Amino acid sequence: MRDSAESFDPAYGRVRRAGRKRRPYFDDEATSAKRERYRPRLATEDAGDATDGLPEGDRWSTWDQSTPTERGPRPHPEWLVTELAAVDTELGILKTGKEADVYLLRRGVPGGRSCLLAAKRYRGAEHRLFHRDAGYLEGRRTRESRVNRAAANRSAFGRQAIAGQWANAEFGALCQLYGAGLPVPYPVQITGTEVLLEFIGDPDGTGAPRLAETRPDGAELAALWDQLVAALAGLAGLGYAHGDLSPYNLLVHGGRLVMIDLPQVVDVVSHPNGRGFLARDARNVAAWFAARGLPGADPERLARLLAGEARLA
């Protein structure tokens, strides 16, 4: 049984703090596998004095703009640059989608060490948000009736509130899953509706391919399947389903499988269709492995395993 005092509740979202003006964005299922790099797009009209003294396209590190609860689990990884003198330089776009964009950043101290980060930005109220969000948002209500009404009506304020809920839902889920040892990117920090994550890829900025872009066979295919089953079983053991799992939100780097895109993580115990989300995740990924000739990639068997791990059997 999960310890509710320790676990993250994706059914509760938080509205972005008033007065913090930052461009909100979101990351959704990929529409294309972008490989274009080094297109600076960091500076915005909202940056104001934050970029004083820096080249266009750069900003000072936002590390000090996040509270301790808005930063990733401790101990912070050794590779992470937390110095306040660091500068964020945007190198290009990693992924685009109907509701989101993800950018590649280099955070580094001038003349010193640096690290690569993925900036996942939830879009603002002027954009159409989460065309498939109704099922995921069921039960994800705040304690403020005004916010609940606005979200239900999809007003501009309501869409902004939903963006805040999804950003905080993903960051909170990643913190818990990373702390539990599941294969997800390290969640660096959240500021407003921008989530900074560990970049999964090579030091030269080449992102890890999605599972759908790979052609594994034999032992490699079997190893990836074993990693996937273990990851999904661990997720279900915590009481969650990914909610939108597919070969497009699984990365493969150095033979390691990494789950990404978790804003819609579903609490399968409290959600009325929790078992259905587990079964859909199992079906989507098992079908991909089965199509590549892997014996034992049975979606029904995987769904039963996950339901058992979630104590829904």
Rank of each mutant, 00 (worst) to 15 (best):
Y25F: 09
D52R: 15
R35A: 10
D28Y: 00
A50I: 11
E29G: 08
K34N: 11
A30S: 04
D46A: 14
E36Y: 05
A33G: 01
D27L: 09
L42K: 01
A50R: 15
L42E: 03
D28A: 12
D27E: 09
D52M: 12
L54D: 11
K34L: 15
D46Y: 13
E29R: 02
D28E: 05
G53S: 10
E36I: 02
Y25R: 05
L42G: 03
R41E: 12
S32P: 00
R39N: 14
A33C: 01
E36Q: 06
T44E: 12
P40Q: 04
K34A: 14
R35S: 10
K34Y: 04
D49Q: 07
D49Y: 10
R41C: 03
A30Y: 00
T51F: 11
G53R: 08
L54K: 02
Y38S: 12
D52V: 13
A43L: 10
T44C: 10
K34D: 14
G48E: 13
T51Q: 13
D52T: 12
G53Y: 11
A33K: 01
P40N: 04
Y25P: 00
A43Y: 00
L42V: 02
D28W: 01
T51V: 15
T31I: 13
R41D: 03
D46I: 05
A33Y: 07
S32V: 05
E29S: 03
A50L: 14
D49N: 07
T31Q: 09
F26N: 04
D46L: 15
